[in-house]
């Protein structure tokens, strides 16, 4: 058993939201085709660190296990990504795991991404269809447009773009790239477009679109390949038109 292959992991741990973070090393038995989550499950099964001391199991968040929900995002070897699609065989060892510290750390690798959901509410990232009567079918959407919009709709609010953005931090109110791109998605929807002006006003509120500094890390970091910087530039154009319309234009515009 002495020559059994192992995986070395260095995990940044934190016992509670206000506790001091610390590092703990683990050495776990290697299996074929492991991802970071199955490695973490191995630690949970046998919570013993590399020194052979018994410790608390490492805590992390997960959901779908197929890179659709965004819950298991963490910083793996310095790069924010989903731990479900981070394969051990493709990672340099020791594998370093840290929480995405752009968000409040709840425990170990689990963070609270509430701010992103608050931002989606702020920018009205939905299509309002509720009324006092049946609103009927909405207008049709061209297939080419639907395919394009589908790419934007792949956003899973995972927070990787916020973690990568130098302008999203405790010194700034910037809501980050993800909710910006959602404004573009819902403004493009034929029924969603009814509320375009409202969304633009919310988008240009403090901490909104204007806080983007064009470092363009988001588009590189996005696991879903969403054209975030194209969305931002397109919204910039929309914002230019919108602000001219509201200042020089009519008392009603959409």
């Amino acid at each position: 058993m002495a020559d059994q292959k192992t995986i070395k992991m260095i995990i940044q741990r934190q016992d509670e939201p206000n506790a001091q973070p610390y590092e703990e090393e683990f050495e776990i038995p290697y299996r074929k085709n492991m991802n970071v989550i199955s490695a973490l499950m191995e630690i949970r099964r046998n919570p013993v660190n590399a020194k052979g001391e018994k410790t608390t199991p490492v805590y992390w968040d997960m959901g779908c296990l197929e890179e659709v929900c965004g819950a298991c995002s963490m910083v793996i070897n310095g790069k924010a990504q989903q731990s479900c699609t981070a394969l051990i065989d493709q990672l340099e060892q020791p594998v370093r795991l840290e929480p995405m510290k752009t968000f409040p750390v709840m425990r170990d690798l689990a963070v609270d991404r509430s701010r992103m959901f608050d931002s989606l509410k702020q920018v009205k990232a939905w299509v309002p269809i509720d009324g006092t009567y049946d609103l009927g079918e909405g207008p049709r959407m061209a297939e080419s447009k639907r395919q394009w919009a589908y790419e934007l709709s792949k956003c899973m609010t995972c927070g990787v773009c916020l973690e990568a953005c130098p302008n999203v931090n405790s010194k700034s109110d910037f809501i980050g790239p993800a909710p910006l791109s959602q404004v573009r998605l819902f403004n493009a929807h034929p029924t969603g477009a009814y509320h375009k002006a409202e969304r633009m006003d919310a988008l240009l509120d403090d901490g909104g679109l204007q806080d983007c500094g064009n470092s363009q890390n988001c588009v590189q970091a996005c696991p879903k390949g969403i054209p975030l910087t194209t969305s931002i530039a397109a919204l910039n154009r929309e914002a230019t038109v919108h602000s001219f319309k509201s200042f020089f234009g009519s008392d009603y515009h959409n």
Binding site: P166, K171, S172, S215, Q216, Q220
Partner: peptide, 22 residues
């Protein structure tokens, strides 16, 4: 003010545009 509200991260994200940003 803008410069000091950024938290630069070129060591982690060494992309061309991020360097230009810094």
């Amino acid at each position: 003010y803008i410069a000091f509200t950024a938290k630069n991260n070129v060591s982690r994200y060494g992309f061309f545009r991020n360097w230009m940003f810094l």
